[in-house]
Design a protein around this nucleic acid. Structure first.
Length: 499
RNA sequence: GGUACCAUGGCCGAGUGGCUAGGCAGAGGUCUGCAAAACCUCGUACAGCAGUUCGAAUCUGCUUGGUACCUCCA
């Protein structure tokens, strides 16, 4: 596709992307709740939307990317143990709530940096926008779509549904929701089961609390995103992203609140990434398979056979379309690790080549020229089709043998024209690093290690010159044992990589 | 129970009507002192049944199996 099309969860169809304001894109992505350490589930949406952000930027849009931090802690469903997750844990750990929030926010930022995601333009916190949230709730009450009871405020879903399409995004049928007979304790405050909280009166033991027109309490979960998105992106904006699990009730509620408050549907394009599974099962506390990112990078979890690097995970995620479920299995992860290594080694070699040292007289091979040109051009086409990262990576892999062929001289110098070779270098740099955010992970940027390796390589070269295979093999094998791989190259050189 | 979605070769995973993605693993070969790496060649897959069509992995129906959401969750 020549122009960007995105799949809109709201219409359930791919639509041509046209921003509200030409040249500018407003994008809101639901951020993490920082009541605990980031886990594997966080990797997918933020890497997915990092690609969206990078690609939109590449297309020339000025993108304002807003991703919140939910640090106020929201309550469980009424009737179950209503409690603020953050305040509960704070008591256990004997920490100030905000201290805990800060700790997990820092960890989240660290993990996102490991994944090489670009920080959002604005990262607003829920606690920093209590005023805006209260203002929005007041407006909802003023318009008669919210009601106060016992110091809490609820959104009147039944009334909203009379004039609006409540449930369209998530495919719910409003009547069924209202008629559901499942009785839950503590439901009595709400007029209808489908109503959701905008503000909750805080019980005495609740640590996080703010003054409001309705007494001391804390905001409902859904209102923060509506308030902050409105503040920073306007009453209507282009893209709202998040995990599929947020479609209901979170995003459905956002639509309802914002539509009433701002008299316009808030979002043009809803984008939802699909979920991940761990070795075929949903990741969840009950399965005991929630893998924290720190555990993932260290390989420190029963589900993991080994550690997987942040770039391996990033690459792995991008190898699948964002709307498909993705299973984190060891075999698949290891396949991704090896594939990424091959890709990046070819890429790094290519980037090190002088721009144009091609004085050879071989006639450029038209077939090869065409192949390279076509593959490079396909990158954008595939991205324009709802961010087809998997197909872009597949095309990159088709270029790997070309690059290695040039490297090994299997493809005669000059077979590819200077212009195309240069284009290959430049385009791959743009796509691999700038758009896909894949960066080399070699730990070889240590001068002293470089020096030591050079000493060993020199000794081994001498040994080989004397046909002293014993010494030569000993050096190679012992290095391999500690995870450093030596490769003899065709021209007599030696390269090494850390496995 | 309700509502969606999915079922592709050993594993993962693109692909929406004809032009056999890609990765990993595996087999053979080239190269190499031997390896490794790299490169070349090889797999004719699309849950089952029925139907639509000149033609289906791709459309329709049914069957079976799976997953997700409905509840804090990315």
């Amino acid at each position: 596709m020549k122009e960007l099309h995105v799949y809109n969860s709201y219409s359930r169809a791919k639509e041509k992307f046209e921003p509200l304001v030409p040249g500018h894109v407003g994008m809101y992505v639901c951020g993490p709740t920082v009541s605990g350490e980031s886990h594997l589930g966080h990797a997918r949406p933020y890497i997915t939307f990092d690609l969206v952000y990078r690609y939109l930027t590449h297309l020339g849009y000025k993108v304002r990317y807003v991703r919140n931090i939910t640090d106020a802690g929201h309550f469980e469903e009424e009737g179950r143990e209503a409690e603020d997750k953050i305040s509960k844990k704070a008591v256990i750990e004997k920490l100030e709530p905000m201290e805990l929030v800060q700790k997990y926010t820092n960890l989240f930022h660290w993990a996102m940096d490991q994944f090489n995601t670009v920080p959002p333009s604005i990262e607003p916190t829920a606690t920093g926008h209590i005023v805006e949230q209260i203002g929005m709730i007041q407006e909802l009450i003023r318009q008669g779509y919210a009601y106060e009871i016992n110091g809490s405020v609820y959104f009147d879903v039944r009334k909203y549904a009379e004039g609006h399409d409540y449930g369209k995004l998530s495919g719910r049928v409003i009547d069924e929701m209202l008629e559901t007979t499942r009785e839950l304790e503590g439901q009595d405050e709400k007029r209808n089961k489908a109503d959701f909280a905008l503000w909750k009166a805080a019980p005495p033991e609740h640590i996080m609390r703010w003054n409001s027109p309705w007494g001391e309490g804390f905001p409902g979960w859904h209102i923060e995103c509506s308030a902050m998105a409105t503040k920073y992106l306007g009453k209507q904006f282009d893209i709202h992203g998040g995990g599929m699990d947020l479609q209901f009730p979170h995003h459905e509620s956002e639509i309802a609140q914002s539509t009433i408050c701002n008299h316009t549907p808030p979002v043009r394009y809803w984008m939802h990434n699909n979920m991940i599974t761990i070795n075929g099962r949903k990741m969840g506390k009950s399965y005991n398979n929630v893998i924290r990112l720190t555990e993932l990078f260290r390989g420190d979890h029963p589900e993991l056979e080994k550690a997987y690097s942040p770039m391996t995970v990033r690459f792995f995620i991008l190898q699948t379309h964002y709307r498909s479920t993705l299973d984190f299995g060891n075999e698949a992860l290891q396949a991704a690790e090896k594939g990424l290594k091959r890709l990046m080694e070819a890429y790094e070699w290519l980037q090190k080549q002088p721009a144009a040292d091609d004085a050879a007289t071989v006639t450029p091979d038209n077939e090869l020229e065409e192949k390279v040109t076509t593959l490079l051009a396909s990158f954008a086409d595939n991205m324009n089709d709802d961010f087809g990262t998997a197909r872009v990576l597949a095309s990159m892999f088709e270029l790997v043998p070309v690059i290695n062929g040039i490297k090994d001289k299997a493809i005669a110098p000059g077979t590819l024209s200077v212009a195309t070779f240069t284009k290959l270098q430049q385009e791959l740099k743009l796509w691999v690093e700038d758009i896909f955010g894949l960066r080399p992970e070699t730990a070889a940027d240590n001068d002293k290690l470089q020096g030591v390796m050079q000493v060993l390589i020199n000794i081994r070269k001498d040994a080989r010159a004397r046909k002293d295979w014993g010494t030569s093999d000993a050096i190679r094998n012992q290095l391999a044992a500690i995870g450093i791989q030596l490769k003899d190259e065709k021209d007599g050189g030696m390269a090494w990589t850390i496995a």
